[in-house]
């Protein structure tokens, strides 16, 4: 099957799960601090647990090579913090603003457009000089068990290849820690009409594993997809050649279609427009910060958090820490400050 068609189908599935699970990483991170509500956080951690086992199993069976994201410390620290602040202003993370387009959220559409264009400018566009300031990736030549994709012998850093031990050791310890947290951290009560945290978390994790088996080079992502859509659509193309839309670009289209269908079916589709025009400016600024952050860090809450943490990639661990700090800082600034 054409990879682009596969990307579209995986995207539709992803969009349905996001919509029915009301999965938003911005809410997940924020609510733990602001309202002491861990419902979506537990859903996200369960998905990461399923993926940690799934990805390592797929690599063990030789179906894929694990391909962690490159570690550029400054990029993940600064980019993570900017991304974390941006998602609070935008009212949703990268996947959140993408699937909410399908639910009829005008603000999500505006945030996603500014996010995609800014990310494209930073990744190989007119703002790419920013990435040269951040420095070069730190890599290793360790490749325990041949689990990892190598480029000229260089492998991107994970906890396992940094310590040069069997990746299963780190994966199983990480999975057990997650399991302990999930079992002993009391779930905030919530009456849900869609997927609950257990069914939603398992479904999200499985979509991640399916995505890796389909795309091969990486599981789910959002930033690269928006960049591909904008760049290809507005490029000066040689039409005798195939048009370079890719798996991830079509995945974005699929997410919007899947969320639209799920919302329509559940009678939750509705055009939603904020009353105060300043909200449009706020979400546009949020989108720009997210694009700038994800563009330089090499991924967003999906690429780094949902897909990157199960690799135990150092880059994704650093990004996650600083995205959480950026989110909490902006939540404090906007909603908690006296």
């Amino acid at each position: 099957m054409d990879p682009r068609l596969q990307g579209l189908l995986v995207g539709i599935l992803f969009g349905i799960v996001l919509q029915r699970g009301r999965i938003c990483f911005n809410s997940a991170i924020r609510d733990v601090k602001m309202t002491k509500d861990n419902y979506l956080m537990k859903l996200a951690l369960l998905a990461i647990l399923v993926e940690t086992i799934g990805f390592h199993l797929a690599a063990q069976l030789g179906w894929i090579k694990l391909n962690p994201k490159p570690l550029i410390p400054l990029a993940q620290i600064i980019g993570g913090f900017l991304f974390g602040m941006g998602m609070v202003l935008a009212g949703g993370c990268a996947s959140g603003v993408t699937y909410r387009i399908g639910e009829g959220y005008i603000t999500a559409f505006i945030a996603a457009v500014f996010y995609g264009i800014t990310a494209a400018a930073v990744k190989g566009g007119p703002l790419s000089f920013v990435n040269r300031w951040m420095g070069k990736p730190i890599t290793t030549t360790n490749n325990p068990g041949g689990f990892y994709a190598a480029k000229d012998g260089a492998v991107n850093l994970t906890l396992a290849n940094l310590l040069n031990i069997n990746p299963w050791i780190v994966a199983i310890i990480f999975a057990l820690l997650l399991l302990i947290v999930l079992v002993f951290w009391k779930t905030t009560e919530r009456k849900v009409s869609g997927l609950n945290w257990i069914t939603g978390g398992i479904a999200l994790g499985l979509v991640g594993v399916i995505a890796y088996l389909s795309q091969k080079t990486y599981p789910l992502g959002i930033t690269g997809g928006w960049v591909n859509l904008f760049r290809t659509t507005t490029a000066n193309l040689d039409l005798t050649q195939p048009i370079p839309y890719n798996w991830e670009g079509m995945e974005i289209v699929g997410i919007i279609i899947g969320a639209y269908l799920a919302a329509l079916f559940a009678k939750e589709f509705r055009l939603r427009v904020p009353k105060d025009p300043k909200t449009f400016v706020q979400v546009a600024v949020g989108g720009i910060l997210m694009g700038f952050g994800a563009g330089s860090a090499g991924g967003c809450n999906i690429g780094h958090i949902l897909s990157g943490l199960p690799h135990l990639a150092i880059s994704s661990i650093v990004f996650t820490i600083f995205a959480v700090l950026g989110n909490w800082f902006m939540v404090w600034y906007l909603f908690e400050r006296k």
């Binding site: 009301r22 609510d31 309202t35 509500d37 919530r190 009409s193 559940a266 939603r272």
Partner: peptide, 16 residues
């Protein structure tokens, strides 16, 4: 409100 997520979250948050 007009968003299902708010409908599910607000009741949990007001008790506090």
């Amino acid at each position: 409100i007009d968003y299902a997520l708010s409908k599910e979250r607000i009741p949990a948050g007001v008790k506090e």
